[in-house]
Design a binder for these strands. Structure first.
Lengths: 234, 234
DNA sequence: ACCTGAACACCGTTCAAGT
DNA sequence: ACCTGAACACCGTTCAAGT
C-alpha cells in the first residue's frame, strides 16, 4: 500500500517502524514486540498486531521466531542484558553492587511490567543466568563460604523476582492509578473489614503503614534485610 | 444421562463429582476447578472442560462466578486458607512459626503449581492478606520496631512468592522430570557454554552446586538468611 | 431464577500457495 | 528462501431461548 523507495535510504541509521524495511529479522521482530509491550501492555502483543506493525503476514514471523514464548524470552533477555550491563562492571563494594543491581532490576521491571511477568514464568530462560550473575558475582569477593554462594544468590533472585512480579501484576491489573493514596486507602479499608482476631497483623498494617508506604523504598528495605542476613551468617 | 437418585443420598457427606448434584454453587464449581487444575494443570482448566465435568453448560458457570480470574483467586484462597490454618494457631517461637509457615506455603505451591502462578499474578487477591498475616504475625511478638514490621513481612512474602513462583513455573514447563540429575546436568552444560569472563559466578555454580542442589533445602536456606537479617537489624 | 448451548470476537499456530 | 494470509483448533464470555 505504501510505496517504498527501495534502497534509497540505506545509509540512514535510524529505524522507521512505520514503513516496511527490506527484510524481516529476529531483531526487528523482537524490537517491534518490545514497542508494543511497552506502549500497550502484554495483552496487546498478538501475532496479528505484530504482523500489522511489521507490514507482513502473521506466518512470516514464524520464520524467525519459534513461538510466542521464544519471542517473549528474547525480548526479556534484551531488556535484562541492558540493565545488567549498566549495573555490572564497576568495582564497587560488594554490598553496594548488589544493591545497585537489585534496584536496577526493580526499576526496569517497573518500567516494563511484562518483563516481571515473563521472568516469573520460565525459570531457565536466558535472562536468568544474567540475573544470577549480577546478584551473585559480588558474593565471590565477600567472605561467604563457597558452599553458601548459590543458596544466597538464589535467595536474592527469588526476592527480586517476587517483589518485581507483584509490582508488575499491580501495574497490569491497575494500569493507571492516578491517586495512589485513594487506591491504597481502598485496600486498607478492605483489610480492615477482616476479622481482627484472625488478622491482628493485617489490621495494624492497614491502619498505619500500608496507606503511606513506598514500593521502591520497601523493596530496598528488603534487599538490606537480606544483606544484613548475609553479614550475620558469615 | 446418568440417572439420579434424587435426595436419597442426602445424609452422605462425601462429594461425588461424577454425577450431577441437585444445584450448581460457587463451592462446587471451585472444587471441580481445583480437581482439574491438580490433575491436568493450568492449561486444562477451561470453561468448557469445567462445564463438562459439572454436566452443565459453559454459561451456567457465570451465574456463580464473575469470570476466570474470580474462579482462580477463589480456588487459590481455598488452598491458602487450609495451609495457613495448619501453620497458624500454635504458640511456637516466632522464628519457628515463620519457618513453618514459609515451608507450608512452599510445599502447598509445590503440590499445586497453579497456586504459585496465580499468586504472582494478582497482588491484592484475598489470599494475600492471609499470607502476609501468617508471615508477619509472629513479628509482633519479636522486638522488631513497629515501623519495620510491614517492610519485613512484605520482604518475607516477596521471597516466598518469588521462590514458589519459580518452582511452579518449573513444574509447568517440565511436568514430569523423572531424572533430576540429568535435567540439572543439561542446565549446567548450557551455563558452562556462556563466556567465563562475563559469567564467573555462573560457571562456579554450574560446576559445583547447581547439579546437586535441593530446591526445598535451598528455599529454607533463604528463609534462614532473612531471619538472620531480622535478628541482625534489631 | 437458573440453566442451556450456540454464537461472537478473539487467540497461537500451521500450511498450501505464491514470489 | 522467504513471505502471504486463509484456515484450523481452540479460547473466555455473552445472550436469546428455554424450564
Amino acid at each position: 500500500m505504501v510505496p517504498m523507495a527501495t534502497g534509497v535510504q540505506r545509509t540512514q541509521q535510524t529505524q522507521r517502524t512505520e514503513r516496511r524495511a527490506d527484510a524481516l529479522s529476529k531483531e526487528r521482530i523482537v524490537d517491534a514486540a518490545i514497542e508494543i509491550l511497552d506502549a500497550d501492555g502484554e495483552s496487546a502483543l498478538t501475532f496479528r498486531a505484530l504482523a500489522a506493525r511489521l507490514a507482513t503476514g502473521a506466518g512470516a514471523i514464524y520464520h524467525h521466531v519459534a513461538n510466542k514464548n521464544d519471542l517473549l524470552s528474547t525480548a526479556v533477555n534484551e531488556v535484562v542484558a541492558e540493565v545488567v550491563a549498566e549495573a555490572a562492571g564497576g568495582d564497587a563494594e560488594p554490598r553496594e553492587a548488589i544493591r545497585a543491581a537489585a534496584l536496577g532490576l526493580f526499576d526496569a521491571i517497573d518500567a516494563h511490567p511484562w518483563v516481571g511477568t515473563q521472568l516469573s514464568q520460565d525459570p531457565w530462560q536466558p535472562a536468568i543466568p544474567r540475573i544470577l550473575e549480577v546478584l551473585g558475582g559480588p558474593l565471590l569477593t565477600l567472605d561467604v563460604s563457597r558452599c553458601a554462594c548459590f543458596d544466597t544468590a538464589s535467595a536474592l533472585m527469588s526476592y527480586v523476582l517476587g517483589a518485581a512480579g507483584q509490582n508488575a501484576a499491580n501495574a497490569r491489573v491497575h494500569p493507571h492509578v492516578t491517586d495512589r493514596a485513594a487506591f491504597l486507602g481502598e485496600i486498607a479499608a478492605r483489610w480492615t473489614h477482616l476479622d481482627p482476631a484472625e488478622y491482628p497483623f493485617i489490621h495494624q498494617v492497614a491502619a498505619v503503614e500500608l496507606p503511606v508506604h513506598d514500593d521502591r523504598a520497601q523493596f530496598l528495605a528488603g534487599v538490606d534485610l537480606i544483606l544484613a542476613g548475609i553479614d550475620a551468617l558469615q
